[in-house]
């Protein structure tokens, strides 16, 4: 071989460049700890997504500490859930799978970005330090309305975040003279206990009860309402826990055959 000196120098420089690139990337993996999407998520039959433990109810779950899991199902042309809320200063592991064709799950303006291949679960973990709002988009062609496939990821301040859910069971009407119960069911998705106050406003009355909802559990609070405290006819009620509230109406009716029957049931 007859290689010019300059060319030999260039070959060495090229190798230095190549090795330097590989070294930088290895540094990225070891130093800042950047991991590639890999086969950790496992595989899944797309037909059985609804029966899957993880994907049956996609959404945010608290694992403990500042760790969360978010499961997302992608399909033409939406994500379920379409809007994700997580707290700042959290470590979030996403599990994403597809019901139909290949999509992507890309959080715009970040390095959180994965392909979503049917039959596979993409698993990736990222830390969200600051509150922010991100768009999510699909960057893999998935059919003719591909360009409409988007979602949102809202990172809210830690103190504004909870996984509390409130549901209320209450009768629609109550016979005058009777008592009824309005039952608030408070679910706590966080792993820590939730100490809070459940309050019921009805008529011009307020009842309050302090509860401790266990981590990953729920608590029922029953408020007893006496029709004697209420006006005849419709009474609006509101149950409040932290920022959540549920409202309804309770009608006090006079039972038929009662002495005050004056030709009309209530104020109908």
């Amino acid at each position: 071989m007859n290689i010019h000196t300059y060319e030999k120098v260039w070959i060495v420089a090229s190798m230095v460049l190549i090795v330097g690139f590989i070294a930088t990337i290895t540094y990225g993996a070891v130093g800042p700890g950047i991991a590639m999407i890999d086969d950790d998520g496992g595989d899944i039959n797309p037909d059985e997504i609804n029966d899957d433990e993880r994907f049956a109810e996609p959404g945010v779950e608290h694992v403990g500490g500042n760790e969360y899991e978010v499961t997302v199902v992608a399909q033409a042309w939406s994500y379920t859930p379409s809007e994700i809320e997580i707290p700042a200063n959290s470590e979030v592991t996403f599990y994403v799978t597809s019901r139909d064709v290949t999509h992507s799950f890309s959080v715009v303006g970040t390095n959180v970005n994965t392909m979503v291949v049917p039959g596979q679960v993409s698993e990736m973990t990222a830390k969200f330090d600051e509150p922010d709002e991100y768009g999510i988009l699909c960057n893999e062609y998935c059919g003719e309305y591909h360009h409409t496939m988007e979602g949102k990821l809202n990172v809210v301040p830690e103190d504004e975040f909870d996984l509390t859910e409130l549901s209320v069971e209450a009768d629609d009407e109550i016979d005058a003279g009777n008592e009824t119960t309005i039952t608030a069911n408070v679910t706590n998705g966080m792993q820590e206990d939730l100490e809070t106050t459940v309050s019921l406003e009805i008529g011009n009355q307020t009842q309050e009860e302090d509860v401790t909802v266990p981590g990953d559990g729920s608590e029922e609070v029953a408020f007893t309402v006496d029709s004697a405290d209420l006006d005849e006819g419709d009474n609006d009620w509101t149950v409040t826990v932290d920022d959540y509230e549920e409202s309804g109406t309770l009608s006090v009716v006079t039972p038929e055959g009662n002495e005050s029957a004056d030709g009309g049931d209530g104020d109908a």
Partner: peptide, 24 residues
């Protein structure tokens, strides 16, 4: 397929070194 699920990181790393050497 760097961002594909279902392929282990090691295989991606091998593909990367081959790619980098193909710069030569």
């Amino acid at each position: 397929q760097y961002l594909d699920p279902g392929i282990a990181e090691g295989y991606k790393f091998i593909a990367m070194t081959n790619t980098m050497f193909l710069l030569l």
